[in-house]
């Protein structure tokens, strides 16, 4: 089975966000594989181990993203692709990202593409479904279980707390929701092996993409931090009185009840 996993390099969830000059400051920040993409990588490895085939992890970004690709290879992916756009594009929106990836994948005949259901930085969750549409294949988002039998695929997906059970077929793109699996940590031998695994780097030129073809459709004009929340009132006194006071405050002062 020819399996691709879309991976994004994102800020570590522990990081505080600092904005200066209208941009998120990246200096000194720790970067990780987007947590939802880790579920996708793990699932891809499990599918390959059960069905045979090859797992290729793919990312769109700059040189720095090589580290996250190596981590995915250390987990057990077979090959990696870095579509390096840092010298060509200033701004990449979801339209552009999906288009570039589709141009790379269009002659690769993937049977299964996996991705996280959302990236914890931009948080739009668009690139997976957009890509499936461009490749003309079906997609299922926020999956929590995947079973493949021949070309028949049975999936459980999370729909706002409910579970939907559905059937579809390969080729297919799925996006991973928490609960799909327990992503493995790279083992030491895995890390050693990852250094020798193939990592292909391509640029827009290699894909015959003109910068005008991928001009962003939307534009971020400002980034700012939410107003800092002041610590509120910690109640005191007898517990029963505190509870009564709280209900009174919520009712009369905050007016939310």
């Amino acid at each position: 089975m020819n399996i691709y996993v879309l991976v994004k390099r994102t800020f570590d969830t522990e990081e505080k966000i600092v904005v200066s000059g209208g941009k998120i400051q990246e200096d000194g920040a720790e970067f990780i594989i987007n947590p939802y993409d880790e579920y996708a990588i793990e699932e891809a490895i499990q599918v390959r181990d059960a069905q045979g085939g090859e797992v290729t992890v793919l990312t769109l970004g700059g040189e720095d993203a090589e580290k996250q690709l190596r981590t995915a290879l250390a987990m057990g992916a077979d090959k990696a692709v870095l579509i390096n756009i840092e010298d060509d594009l200033e701004e990449v929106d979801q339209f552009a990202a999906a288009f570039i990836i589709s141009e790379y994948l269009k002659d690769k005949n993937p049977d299964l593409i996996l991705a996280g259901n959302v990236a914890i930085d931009g948080g739009s969750g668009q690139v997976g479904p957009r890509l499936a549409e461009l490749l003309g294949i079906n997609y299922v988002t926020t999956i929590t279980n995947l079973e493949i039998d021949g070309t028949t695929v049975t999936i459980k997906r999370d729909v706002e707390g409910d579970t939907e059970v559905l059937e579809t077929s390969l080729p297919l793109l799925v996006t991973a929701q928490q609960g799909l699996n327990e992503p493995r940590y790279p083992s030491l031998p895995g890390i050693m092996k990852a250094k020798k695994k193939p990592l292909e780097e391509v640029e827009l030129d290699d894909l015959d993409i003109d910068e005008d073809d991928v001009e962003a459709k939307i534009e971020t004009i400002e980034i700012y931090l939410p107003p800092k929340k002041e610590a509120g009132k910690v109640l005191a006194g007898d517990l029963a009185d505190q509870v009564r006071e709280l209900v009174e405050l919520l009712h009369s002062e905050a007016k939310v009840i």
Partner: peptide, 17 residues
């Protein structure tokens, strides 16, 4: 819209279309 799960916000314009 919130980004970084609400740790920051961005203002976005649609360029055309």
């Amino acid at each position: 819209r919130p980004i970084y799960s609400g740790k920051a916000f961005e203002k976005v314009k649609v360029k055309n279309g």
